[in-house]
């Protein structure tokens, strides 16, 4: 049977992608951001997941205002990196896991979550930056990936509670798949940042750190945080953190924190990164 073995959370700041692509990761500004991923790079080499279920949000790339799926699952054979206005990132094409993805779609929809099924989609920095941060710059990504875009751009966006419950449904789905697969679930985005208005540049280190403190052992409390608290405390774009709760819901009750990294600033944003191992 397929097993969920671990979870990773990470920011997915677009500028980080550009810094990796242009080889500027060792500059004094960027080095502390990337150093926090050294552990994870070594760890994942040992773990060798077969599939990463990658929760992220599309930033007006594959979806525009014409269609706005709340939760969507990529079921295609492959997903090309998107051209976000600067030309596509020079990263490998993302190889999907269609059989597992369709299985998850069916199971999760039968558990009363309505997913949009996607068979053709370009993937933006929300998905490719986490891959680069963890896997570096290989010729091909070392595992298959199921993209899972969540709408956190156009309100109404899903609540943290809904995301947490969805994660649990995804766990049930993955664990009922017959093939013997090592699956990781990643939740990306955040942490505190605001990209608009006179309050732009807001960073709330105390709030972010309390969020990190509770992710492993007290996720139910995080799931109760209403939208307005994310916006007020973590900035209008801090709402991306609800996606971490999908990852956390998928990991089951008990997890062990293996690694934590927090750094301010990267561009406009607080970088948060955690590695959690599923225990039960």
């Amino acid at each position: 049977m397929a097993r969920i073995t671990a979870g990773v959370t990470t920011s997915h700041i677009p500028l980080i992608g550009r810094v990796i692509d242009t080889g500027e990761t060792e500059t004094p500004y960027w080095k502390p951001v990337f150093d926090g991923y050294d552990f994870t790079k070594r760890w994942i080499e040992k773990e060798q997941p077969d599939v990463v279920f990658l929760v992220y949000n599309d930033h007006a790339t594959a979806f525009d205002m014409r269609m706005i799926p709340t939760f969507a699952i990529g079921c295609a054979e492959e997903f090309p990196p998107a051209d976000e206005g600067y030309g596509p990132r020079p990263v490998p094409v993302v190889e999907g896991a269609p059989e597992l993805a369709w299985h998850i779609a069916q199971s999760v929809i039968e558990q009363d979550f309505d997913l949009t099924i996607i068979n053709e989609m370009a993937v933006d920095h929300g998905l490719t930056v986490p891959l680069s941060l963890v896997f570096g710059q290989p010729d091909a990504w070392p595992c298959r990936i199921i993209p899972f875009p969540v709408n956190v751009v156009v309100y109404p966006v899903p609540s943290g509670r809904r995301c947490f419950k969805l994660g649990k449904a995804i766990r049930t789905a993955i664990e009922s798949f017959d093939e013997d697969l090592n699956v990781q679930v990643w939740g990306t985005g955040g942490m505190s940042h605001q990209l608009q208005g006179t309050r732009a540049g807001l960073i709330n280190q105390e709030w972010d750190k309390r969020f990190l403190d509770r992710l492993a052992d007290n996720p139910e409390e995080l799931a109760e945080i209403p939208h307005v608290e994310y916006i007020r405390e973590a900035g209008s774009e801090g709402i991306e953190l609800v996606m971490w709760l999908i990852m956390r819901g998928a990991l089951g009750d008990k997890v062990k924190e293996l690694h934590r990294h927090y750094h301010v600033p990267a561009s406009n944003t607080a970088v948060g990164h955690m590695v959690l191992e599923a225990v039960d």
Binding site: S192, Q196, G197, R199, A200, G201, I203, V264
Partner: peptide, 26 residues
């Protein structure tokens, strides 16, 4: 994004970047 965000705060871009380096807007 830094350019656009700074322009909305009314701060010059270098001042905004300086604020981010000091830990962002409280």
């Amino acid at each position: 994004f830094v350019h656009a965000a700074a322009s909305m705060t009314g701060m010059p871009e270098d001042e905004y970047k300086e604020m981010m380096l000091r830990g962002g807007r409280s």
